[in-house]
Design a protein around this nucleic acid. Sequence first.
DNA 1: TATTGTTATACTCTATAACTATA
DNA 2: TATAGTTATAGAGTATAACAATA
Lengths: 140, 140
Amino acid sequence: MARANRDGCAAWHLLVEFLLSQRTHLPNLAAALELSPTQCHVLHLIEPGRPIPMKQLAATLACDASNVTGLVDRLESRGLVRRLPGRTDRRVKELDLTPTGARLRTELMSRMTSPPASLGRLSVRDQRTLVRLLTLLRDE
Amino acid sequence: MARANRDGCAAWHLLVEFLLSQRTHLPNLAAALELSPTQCHVLHLIEPGRPIPMKQLAATLACDASNVTGLVDRLESRGLVRRLPGRTDRRVKELDLTPTGARLRTELMSRMTSPPASLGRLSVRDQRTLVRLLTLLRDE
DNA sequence: TATTGTTATACTCTATAACTATA
DNA sequence: TATAGTTATAGAGTATAACAATA
């Protein structure tokens, strides 16, 4: 296990460095659409036509529920999301994207997915390998 | 190039998803040390005994210089960093870690580098491959 | 009683603009 | 004049605690 730990740590260390180096990427990209990083995250999490309860948003963002109120207030005031009453439990409010929100989400996803130049330095084979490994990391 | 683009995009998309999914990781880890994510980033950037000008910090963090003042104020009031007068240019202030700051940095780096369970699902060979690919991405 | 969402409050990060000291 | 850093101010994210409506 010593070897596995060493390589695992090295890989993780590189991912952390990548993470830190990209801390400026998302904010920049977000600012271009006049969104905050958190607002981007929310837009990314709500698929059009598939409303999610505010509670779930708080859980996924790992923040207190009280923050979601203000977050959604700002998105709603810009006409990007809608609060819908819960169908079964009237305490719950579900969030859905407006058509405007859905369009902005599409634009955002497109920009987030356009890869940086550094990826072009990998061979096609390496790119595919990277996809495979990251998929392994993601799937539980 | 079509194929290269497709795989590159897929890899990037996965990295972005990883990034978003980890948006909660660093804050949690930071909170455990009573640090903000940005403060972690600063500690990570200052190597003990290698002071850097505040201007450079602002550039690396990609934020306005005015923010660095408050950021450093808070770190300094906790005794983690020191402002040193520039040797040649008296307008410049260089930042160095105090012994306390250096110890906290070590602890922080250690925690940041301890890999999540998901990495253990990769074979040793896959872990090494991931290290190679991420290194390629990092090196300019 | 417990849960969902809101409000009130406080702290940090971030940006812009005006300022001081130095070059 | 230009640059490094500060101060003042404002908006957004985040946490805790107290609260309303509903279950």
